[in-house]
């Protein structure tokens, strides 16, 4: 272990803000990457369900 306590881990030797904001950005971008395809899929399926209820695709 490189750290003695949890507080030291948070502080990162005085550079905590930089290290943790970098990982925060990373987490945000990873979550965006997971969320986007799920949202597209859900919207697509909803749209197809609506079309099916109206009796087949119109186009």
């Amino acid at each position: 272990m490189a750290f003695e306590s949890f507080a030291e881990l948070l502080a990162m030797g005085g550079h905590g803000a930089y290290v943790w904001s970098a990982y925060g950005v990373a987490l945000g971008i990873l979550i965006w990457n997971i969320y986007m395809p799920l949202r597209v899929r859900r919207q697509f399926l909803r749209q197809q369900a609506r079309l099916a209820r109206r009796g087949g695709e119109m186009q």
Partner: peptide, 25 residues
Amino acid sequence: GIGWGLLIAPPDYQQGHTVRIMYIH
């Protein structure tokens, strides 16, 4: 990997703990 990099890996002798950004960068 990130747990290892953030918790266990040693700090750099020049840059200190900021070097841990490397494990995602």
